[in-house]
């Protein structure tokens, strides 16, 4: 177990480096200049040159290395070792200035939101996305597993068909439809909850439900499949023969095995859910992370694109690791 964790953590920086290179390579191909605002005004050529030099946008490799230098902590370490950081600190103190905050992992400025650094943007939006994502996964797991078990208990019954139809709808209906319906139903028609602002934890419910539907549907199908397979297995027959109640067979014996595929799905699903959904965030005006995946690309905000992709990649790796660890712990057969 320790070896698994250590090995994965060693892999993490390598994975991130590969993803960084690929992302920057692709993002660099986006046409136009990230410093260009889409209204019709264009600053003089020398101003553009000066800005490009400042953000190292003049060449791919200078941007590649300088970003890596800043974001990886290498620059921080170097300045610390060489004593530059210390000298700068003294100079700033002598000039009577508060020290400009040196970040160990400096993700750079946002080119679109001039007043915010990428790290601040992520710090402000990730908690919101995490809250909604976790709530959505929670709802999806409870609803999905319940529906799957109910369907598998009596395959072919009306209940089974019903959950199948609901699952189908959950997978096929896009978020913006279910979300809009919920918005019109609750805040607009019934006056429950608010639109356009996050007034309290209660306002997280509707977006979380919207976000949970496709996950719930998929989990329901996974559970049903696993359950049906498990119910025809020998150990279930033994349990029945032993006189375990039908409920006990379903929940204590069959679900234990049928739950494993669901668990392995929960890793990537959670990573996906907690990094936000563009549609759900836009619809419910939530300040989450998902919007940046789309907007940053449209604006060619290079620092932000890389920042959010790195966060997503890190979460994906860590959550997959968490799932693997849980797996071994729940099912000792996996070594």
């Amino acid at each position: 177990m320790i070896r698994l964790i250590a090995w994965r953590l060693v892999q993490l920086p390598i994975i991130l480096l590969v993803i960084y290179s690929a992302t920057l390579f692709l993002a660099w191909q986006i046409p136009g200049s990230p410093l260009d605002t889409p209204d019709a005004r264009r600053p003089p050529e020398e101003v553009i040159r000066a800005m490009e030099a400042q953000y190292k946008l003049d060449s791919f490799w200078s941007f590649y290395w300088s970003y890596l230098d800043n974001a990886s902590g290498v620059r921080y370490a170097r300045e610390w070792v060489s004593g530059d950081a210390e000298r700068e600190r003294e100079a700033a103190l002598a000039a009577g200035k508060p020290l400009l905050q040196r970040r160990m992992f400096d993700l750079g400025p946002s080119l679109q939101y001039d007043d915010w650094r990428v790290s601040e943007i992520i710090a402000a939006s990730l908690p919101v996305s995490v809250a909604i994502g976790c709530l959505a996964i929670l709802v999806a797991t409870v609803v999905g597993v319940a529906a799957g078990v109910a369907g598998a208990a009596r395959p072919g019954s009306a209940l089974d068909a019903g959950t199948f139809v609901v699952a189908l709808v959950g997978v096929s209906l896009p978020n913006f439809v279910t979300g809009t319906v919920l918005l019109i139903l609750f805040p607009v028609a019934l006056g429950w909850g608010s639109i356009g602002r996050l007034a309290g934890p209660g306002d997280l419910v509707l977006p979380a439900v919207t976000l949970s539907l496709p996950f719930a549907a998929y989990i329901a199908r996974l559970t049903r499949m696993g359950m049906i397979e498990a119910l025809s297995a020998d150990y279930v027959r033994t349990a029945r023969a032993k006189g375990v109640s039908p409920r006990g067979v379903l929940l204590r014996h069959a679900l234990k095995n049928a739950g494993l595929p669901v668990l392995s799905y929960l890793g990537p699903a959670t990573a996906l859910a907690v990094t936000g959904s563009f549609v759900v965030e836009r619809l419910f005006s939530l300040p989450g992370l998902g919007q940046h995946f789309v907007n940053a690309v449209l604006n060619k905000d290079l620092f932000l694109i890389i920042g959010v992709v790195m966060v997503f990649a890190t979460l994906l790796v860590l959550l997959n690791l968490a799932v693997d660890v849980l797996y071994r712990w729940i099912d000792p057969r996996i070594g």
Binding site: T180, L183, V188, G196, R282, L283, S285, P287
Partner: peptide
């Protein structure tokens, strides 16, 4: 901060 045009009108 509300960016979705329909949500803006609903708000």
């Amino acid at each position: 901060s509300v960016s979705d045009p329909n949500a803006q009108v609903m708000a």
